[in-house]
Simulated assay, not measured.
Amino acid sequence: MTFAGPTNAGHGGNNATFVEFCGERFPVVPGQPFYIGREATLTVDDNPYLHRRFLLLHDENGMWWLTNLGTHLTATVTAADLGFTAMLGPGARMPLVFGRTSVVFSAGPTTYEVQVQAGTPAPSLPPTTSPGNGDTTRGVPNFTESQKLAVLVLAEAILRRDGTGVSALPSSAQAAARLGWSLTKFNRKLDNVCDKLDLIGVAGMRAGGGKLASNRRLKLVEFALSTGLVSRDDLPMLDAEHARNVAGG
């Protein structure tokens, strides 16, 4: 098996979005789809086992998304600094919320790696329509307001990013303090959310034997962003919840 692409590409400016391959940087422009494949915006190789347009990088709702346009190839998406790895199968898509991301895929005997630096595609999100009281989101299970807050606080740093990069997700203790909750309450709400998602088949909520998955918070944030469960419009809920709990003693 041969390997094409960098194994340790350097870091660039956090606000710019670009793809690096074999030491060359390719800018990605908001509003313009960027394709990766055999005959694409980034043509990685003339490998006949590789789709003409295999991966699509585009901006939507204030975030960058990676979509697998192929029919049989799978890409592995990794944010090494955060210990996050996910498989992107045919027809699947995911938000690139971790700043610097490595994308590895194989076609025939050759394995390729591209690095994606995802900046901020737009200064703000376009107006969106949300349910009446913010307690439920179409297409996902019904969540109470407190359960949604448990998810929102984990995604806060990503939703607030302004081109300065993405911070690691908060610890449970930090998340609880942000909401003015006890650690026990936060963990209980997080467990409730993960249980609901596990029941509908969302991967990564539980490990083998029913144990909690070690990286479930990363998986949860990925799911919440990709389904619109939380958005920047929801962020004021965090300050309101903190103020309410602090005021209440």
Rank of each mutant, 00 (worst) to 15 (best):
V44C: 11
G13Y: 08
V140Y: 05
L197Q: 08
R216G: 09
K148C: 05
A79C: 10
L82K: 10
P109S: 05
E60T: 07
T2N: 02
E156S: 06
G180T: 08
A118P: 03
E241N: 07
P170C: 09
G89L: 05
T17F: 01
L50A: 09
Q32W: 04
A40T: 03
A40L: 13
F34S: 10
V116E: 00
E39T: 11
G228A: 01
P30W: 04
E113I: 06
D191M: 07
G37V: 06
T136M: 12
F3C: 00
T78A: 15
L190R: 15
P33D: 15
N8P: 13
P123S: 10
R217P: 04
V19E: 07
N215R: 11
H51T: 10
G208Y: 12
F98K: 11
A176M: 04
A177V: 02
H51L: 14
E156L: 01
V153E: 01
D59K: 05
P90I: 03
T111H: 06
L225G: 01
L69M: 12
R244Y: 06
A80M: 02
F54L: 05
A247H: 13
V153R: 04
V104Q: 08
R216F: 15
P236T: 09
L225W: 01
Y112L: 00
S167F: 03
T128L: 14
F54C: 02
V140N: 08
L225S: 00
E222F: 04
G163A: 03
V246L: 09
P30G: 00
R25Y: 06
R100T: 10
K189E: 14
F21H: 10
A150W: 14
V151D: 13
L179N: 03
F186T: 08
R25F: 07
G37D: 14
S130I: 08
L154Y: 12
P131E: 02
G23E: 08
A16Y: 11
T41F: 02
G12V: 05
P236E: 03
I158T: 15
G62F: 03
F18N: 06
G209K: 04
G13L: 13
P123T: 09
R53K: 15
L212F: 05
A107C: 01
L56K: 11
V193L: 01
M63P: 02
R161I: 08
T110I: 00
Y35R: 06
L218F: 12
A92T: 09
S182W: 02
P170E: 05
P126Y: 11
P141L: 07
A224P: 05
L152V: 11
A150C: 14
V151P: 08
F98W: 15
T136P: 14
F18P: 07
T41W: 02
R161M: 12
G83R: 02
V44F: 07
G139T: 14
G248E: 12
A243H: 13
A4Q: 13
W181P: 10
L96T: 04
I36P: 11
V28N: 05
A75W: 08
L125E: 14
A175T: 06
G10K: 09
L179R: 06
G163M: 01
